[in-house]
Design a protein around this nucleic acid. Structure first.
Length: 784
DNA sequence: CGCTGCATGCTTTTT
DNA sequence: GCATGCAGCG
């Protein structure tokens, strides 16, 4: 039974060591292309090393060259190096680059991968130590949420008060901090969370029953094993003689503890990170891990990579100006030898649609070369947004004008409904006791098994201590199911019996078997009969899924892959503009970058600031830094005065980060005369246009901005208690005549918390945050 | 049991 | 504005 085709990575070593030794003492031409600190980082092989590598300073180069050097000098064999990354993409790239540096000599680096992928490998070997079987299933977020929902309902808890999603993220955050259910500290166990901890216990117990783990468990279980079984830990401490960690600033507590345990003996650990690019705090990442490094590994060599090879001085200057607003940085001074280049361009727009239209036009112009710049290929351009819903405006616009684009990190292939359904069939065929998978498809396509029938099966399964599939079998045999369900479920059970046998005996190859399953189950037919517009695409996706299976040995191997590798590299042919979130853009670079949506509330995100106060704001600022530093030659920042959110028009102020851009590096573009008409009846007023065009330069705006920054809006707030801005509340009542900087005069029609519904005389009805409003009499105090 | 129509709440970011 | 979830009906 090969649930994972890793053979034995350690035994493999024997063969590989030959090639490693053969390479020993070879010349090292790869060292030539390095600058001094990079070279130092590569050559300091022994002992703890902390590499602080700013954006674009050749961090991956240093890291991969270091691996190459370890191998080339015969210091370590491929299997003795543990190299962890956060994304599969980074792992892949690292592998490729090591290969390139050394030629094709090195066959495998079995322990180069993401924390999660390595966690799976380790956990499969020692599953029994935490009460699992080594063929455990890996649940994704969707499975997790469904499971929690069942537990919540079973515990008679109000689903509204404890939404499964929320519980899922709380449990995940506990796991990130390496808290098993009994280790959740008392201060978390307030009245509200007491139930949460109970549910966490129940959840973990249920996972063991299901022989399943979630993402967090992949790390946490391994950590538990290391902590409780000294012999196992000692074994790995010996095996992993050299440890390398990429994107160290993104490690969470559990990962940190994991690394520290493994490195304890020899202390040959090299961590690479940039505190200014720490953008995963919300996922439990602890920038503090960087700061702790020197404490935990005294005498560590600290190397700073500060020469930037990517961006022009203007771009770098703008990015530095913004990030300087953060306190407590380790501090790096990036420099570059590149030519000055273009300033960062800044432009404001009336609304989000216009922003998309303008960017579309700019992109088309840049393709042909504009303002004396060389033409830029579409592949060299990217639009980086704060939140994925912003992507829509661009997709709409680009579809209209026929501009090819690619969305990176959008709704992923493996998260699509039809793919998950199909995989649920595969899962049950491979592991008949995968209840979650069975439950997912028991009535898809419709088999007449609704709530009642499903409850019956559940009850029987629980009563007999068997899987749901067995429960279904018994229910059929005992005639406990009604008319249609009885026959259909009976058939389904028979099918699964057959498929399971085939999955084991390989009388069909797994691709054929997958097709048979989808056909016999009626799943394909279900979509063929579906006349909705999506149906065709879904069938297409199913075909693609079957095609993807071909690259794997068997179904298990495929399922394993999918569980961990949720990314879909749609290597579409042809040149395309990329649209993605700022988070997804980390590590990438483009000649020309657009950063739209720089409005307070959107970016920095209001939610982030409300939930995490100054810490949240600083993380947002790092996101801004990451965004700007993605650009090589040209960076264009924009904001819109109005944007549709939840179907309602909302106005917003330009982002505070815009004011933090050093003026020397910024070129404020005046919007071209785009307002000539075509906006329908609600054409912007003269005032609105004027305000909009000058919004960045106007003294009034500056003053308003300053006044705001003195307000306690970015103070950390007690979670759960919204601090009410008394100023704002008491300032207005219904019917007041008021003035807004952009919309002019109007009357207050309604009040909702700190938001006012205002009927503006010229700009129409708007919902506006009260701090942007003054009473009409005081309008003179706020000059344009 | 399953469908339709209405109400609700939601948008950060992801291995 | 959209997707999801629920109540009520056939």
């Amino acid at each position: 039974m090969s649930h994972f085709d890793e053979s034995d990575a350690f035994e493999e070593a024997a063969g590989l060591s030959l090639s490693a030794r053969a390479m020993a003492a070879r010349p090292a031409p790869y060292l030539d292309g390095l600058n001094a600190p990079q070279r130092e980082a590569v050559e300091a092989l022994n002992g703890p090393v902390l590499m602080l590598a700013g954006a674009g300073t050749g961090k991956t180069k240093a890291l991969t060259t270091r691996i190459a050097h370890l191998l080339n000098t015969g210091t370590a064999r491929p299997n003795e190096i543990l190299a962890v990354t956060f994304t599969n993409k980074a792992a892949r790239e690292m592998k490729n680059r090591v290969w390139k540096l050394l030629g094709q000599t090195v066959e495998g680096m079995p322990w180069l991968g993401t924390f999660h992928a390595i966690g799976v490998k380790l956990l499969r070997r020692h599953a029994e130590l935490v009460g699992l079987k080594s063929n455990f299933t890996i649940l994704d977020t969707d499975d997790t949420v469904r499971l929690l929902k069942q537990l919540i309902l079973a515990a008679n808890i109000d689903e509204k008060r404890w939404p499964p999603r929320m519980l899922s993220s709380i449990i995940d955050s506990w796991k990130n901090r390496a808290w098993t259910p009994d280790k959740v500290p008392a201060e978390e166990a307030n009245a509200f969370n007491q139930r949460g901890i109970e549910l966490y216990h129940l959840y973990q117990r249920r996972l063991l029953e299901l022989n399943a783990v979630d993402f967090g468990d992949l790390l946490l279980h391994v950590l538990t094993i290391f902590q409780k079984h000294e012999d196992v830990l000692a074994q790995y401490q010996r095996w992993f003689r050299y440890i390398l960690v990429d994107e160290y600033q993104d490690t969470n507590v559990a990962q940190y503890m994991w690394l520290r345990l493994l490195a304890q003996g020899h202390k040959n650990i090299c961590c690479v990170g940039d505190d200014d690019q720490s953008i995963y705090g919300w996922r439990g990442a602890e920038v503090g891990n960087i700061l702790r490094f020197e404490k935990d590994f005294p005498g560590a060599t600290v190397i700073r990579l500060e020469q930037n090879y990517r961006s022009t001085p203007h771009i770098l200057g703008a990015a530095s100006g913004v990030i300087e607003g953060n306190k407590g940085r380790l501090g790096k001074t990036l420099f570059t030898e590149l030519d000055e280049g273009e300033k960062v361009r800044l432009i404001g727009h009336w609304d989000g649609e216009e922003e998309a239209r303008w960017i579309g036009e700019e992109i088309e112009a840049m393709q042909g070369g504009t303002r004396g710049l060389d033409p830029v290929d579409l592949d060299g351009m990217a639009i980086l947004v704060r939140a994925s819903h912003q992507m829509r405006a661009f997709e709409d616009r680009f579809l209209t004008i026929g501009l090819p684009y690619r969305v990176i990190g959008g709704p992923r292939f493996y998260e699509r409904m039809e793919i998950r359904d199909a995989m649920a069939y595969f899962r049950v065929a491979c592991s008949p006791d995968d209840d979650l998978a069975f439950e997912r498809i028991v009535n898809t396509p419709k088999r007449g098994a609704g709530d009642k029938a499903q409850q019956t099966m559940q009850r029987i399964a629980r009563g007999n201590g068997v899987s749901l599939l067995e429960g279904a079998r018994i229910a059929v045999a005992q005639g406990e199911l009604s008319g249609k369900a009885k026959g259909e479920i009976g058939k389904l059970v028979d099918f699964f019996d057959r498929w399971h046998v085939h999955a084991l005996d390989k009388s069909y190859n797994h691709v054929e078997l997958a097709e048979i399953m989808l056909d016999e189950s009626g799943y394909t037919e279900m979509w063929q009969l579906d006349k909705t517009p999506e149906a065709a695409g879904r069938l297409e996706n199913l075909k693609e899924l079957v095609k993807a299976l071909d690259q794997f040995e068997n179904l298990q191997g495929f399922l394993e892959h999918v569980a961990l590798i949720m990314d879909n590299e749609t290597e579409g042919e042809g040149s395309k503009v990329s649209i993605m979130t700022l988070h997804a853009a980390k590590g990438l670079e483009f000649p020309s970058v657009f950063l739209p949506g720089w409005e307070d509330g959107l970016f920095p995100s209001q939610r982030s600031m409300d939930e995490s106060g100054v810490k949240g704001l600083e993380e947002e600022r790092r996101l801004a830094y990451v965004g700007i530093t993605r650009a090589e030659a040209l960076c264009t920042i924009s904001f819109a005065a109005n944007r549709r959110t939840y179907g309602q028009w909302q106005s917003a102020m330009p982002s505070r980060f815009i004011d933090e851009l050093p003026e020397d590096h910024v070129d404020v573009l005046t919007p071209p005369g785009l307002y000539g008409g075509g906006y329908g009846a609600a054409a912007p007023t003269v005032e609105a246009r004027a305000a909009e065009a000058n919004v960045y330069n106007s003294p009034g705006w500056k003053r308003l901005q300053q006044r705001q920054s003195r307000r306690p809006m970015s103070q950390p707030q007690e979670s759960g208690n919204t601090v009410i801005d008394l100023d704002a509340i008491s300032a207005f009542t219904q019917g007041d005549r008021v003035f807004h900087q952009k919309f002019g005069y109007g009357y207050v029609m309604g009040i909702e918390g700190d938001k006012l519904d205002i009927e503006f005389e010229k700009a129409g009805a708007k919902k506006v945050i009260s701090k942007f409003i003054v009473s009409a009499e005081r309008a003179d105090d706020v000059p344009f």
